[in-house]
């Protein structure tokens, strides 16, 4: 299969979206993959839209920003919509959205927007994966896929991969980490305290008001 992997995170190097795409890539070793990074409000200069249109499937991976799609990616989608209106394609679109909240369902609105984009662009929607606890993913890179606290993330990526192979559309998948919500909350808040101290500030600065 020919599959486009589109990293829609503003972060160029490492991000939760990269971790998820890397896991998907590990399941697609026999496919012809093409990768794009949509890191700014403009489509990559060297991007060949005809090449994208000729893929069997495209998988977007991006972080949830304020309940929706990050602004730079909305710009890119508008540019792609113009192209696909003039150049109809048989692409099937899949999307993985991750958020810092525990509940994967909080990515629902962003996935709905992706579906609406598909309709406007004349593209077929496959399915979306809403990942909760995205803040954990960077810390789990050394954990083998499918093991320990990575189990639920891996299960969702495997299910997505199966749908890509079958070129099927299905109900969206929503997952939360396989640790209790309170543990995730405590861990995340400890992380904020460590980060602010690493920046030479005290934890009470987290509460600063202007």
């Amino acid at each position: 299969m020919k599959i486009a992997l589109i990293n829609g995170s503003p972060k160029v190097k490492i991000s939760a979206s990269v971790v998820l795409l890397e896991e998907l890539k590990s399941l697609r070793s026999s496919d012809c993959l093409v990768e794009y990074g949509f890191h700014t409000s403009f489509l990559p200069q060297a991007m060949n839209l005809e090449e994208l249109a000729q893929q069997d499937a495209a998988v977007f991976a991006f972080p949830l920003y304020v309940d929706g799609i990050p602004s730079h990616l909305v710009s890119c989608l508008l540019q792609l919509e113009k192209y696909f209106i003039e150049h109809p394609s048989n692409l099937i679109i899949y999307a993985i959205v991750n958020c810092g909240f525990y509940e994967g369902i909080q990515n629902h609105h962003a996935l709905e927007m992706m579906k609406n984009w598909c309709i406007k662009s004349g593209l077929k929607w496959g399915l979306g994966v809403g990942i909760g606890g995205g803040g954990m993913l960077l810390g789990l890179q050394s954990v083998p896929a499918g093991k320990g606290p990575r189990r639920n993330f891996s299960a969702a990526v495997i299910e997505l991969s199966e749908h890509i192979t079958a070129k099927t559309s299905a109900e969206d998948i929503y997952i939360s980490p396989n640790i209790p919500r309170i543990a995730y909350k405590i861990g995340a808040e400890m992380g904020w305290r460590q980060q602010i101290k690493a920046n030479g500030l005290s934890k009470k600065n987290l509460f600063r008001k202007l």
Binding site: I69, S71, H72, V74, L77, L78, M113, N116, W117
Partner: peptide
């Protein structure tokens, strides 16, 4: 835009 805000507002 697709049920969300325009790029500037977002």
């Amino acid at each position: 835009c697709y049920g969300g805000f325009s790029p500037f507002i977002k």
